[in-house]
């Protein structure tokens, strides 16, 4: 069998897989950020019961393997809720909910590293607590937290392959399909690995670019942002 023609034939199918993987990762990162940031704020500024509930959430999602979470949501939780979701949505949701637990801790660290003086100064200008959080704390925290994303992104990228277990047609799933169809094993696996490594590299470049874009001169806030 001619390896080159096989690869050429299946290449578009793999590229579609890349798009699905990127979709999974992007949705997971966005869900994670949208939930993680409010959770971090709640954990720092919230009431005792709220802190407790968020702590419980974080403990739960960080304590379970991705595979167990996927099975739990795909086979039990969503069916019990009478939600008949596509595997892709289940995968994105689970990775997102789990990502929120991790991201909330990145944001929390960032918020806690902002000096007390920022809040005091904002309040002395007559800002409400909520306004101070929104206009002073969050813009700083997000910038400080950005380097933390350079750990979160590769983790979610490699974890996204676990969605294979519930049949999401992402890169690894398609790779396995090609292997069973063509009986060409190693070269296809290696190709898949290279694609993941390439995605990893490309994503890191994007994060580095974002970091530079939002950097404020002289503001380093513990991260690398602000180095001009």
């Amino acid at each position: 069998m001619d390896l080159f023609s096989v690869v050429a034939e299946w290449f578009p199918y793999l590229v579609e897989g890349i798009l699905v993987t990127v979709g999974l990762v992007a949705s997971a990162l966005i869900i994670g950020a949208c939930l993680g940031l409010p959770m971090a704020i709640g954990q720092v500024y919230g009431s005792r019961p709220l802190k407790y509930v968020i702590g419980l959430y974080v403990w739960f999602f960080r304590g379970l393997p991705v595979l167990v979470l996927l099975f739990m949501f795909y086979f039990t939780i969503f069916p019990l809720l009478n939600l008949d979701l596509d595997a892709f949505f289940v995968g994105a949701t689970v990775l997102g909910l789990r990502g929120a637990a991790y991201q909330s801790q990145i944001f929390r660290g960032a918020i806690q590293s902002i000096s007390e003086g920022q809040m005091t100064a904002a309040r002395s200008l007559g800002m409400s607590r909520a306004a101070a959080i929104r206009t002073i704390i969050i813009p700083q925290a997000v910038r400080i937290a950005l380097p933390g994303w350079s750990n979160e992104y590769p983790n979610i990228l490699t974890d996204s392959a676990i969605c294979y277990a519930i049949g999401v047609a992402e890169l690894l799933t398609r790779t396995s399909q090609i292997v069973t169809q063509t009986y060409i094993t190693m070269p296809i696996y290696i190709l898949c690995a290279l694609m993941f490594i390439m995605l990893n590299f490309a994503g890191m470049r994007v994060i580095a670019y974002l970091e530079k874009r939002v950097a404020i001169p002289g503001f380093s806030g513990g991260g690398q942002a602000g180095i001009v």
């Binding site: 590769p154 790779t175 396995s176 696996y189 490594i197 590299f201």
Partner: peptide, 23 residues
């Protein structure tokens, strides 16, 4: 380190279990 960190663990397991015997 670069390869192992960039490659999903599940793919690594596939390579070790399904891939190596075919080489």
């Amino acid at each position: 380190v670069g390869f192992v960190k960039g490659c999903p663990l599940m793919l690594l397991l596939f390579i070790l279990y399904f891939g190596l015997p075919t080489v």
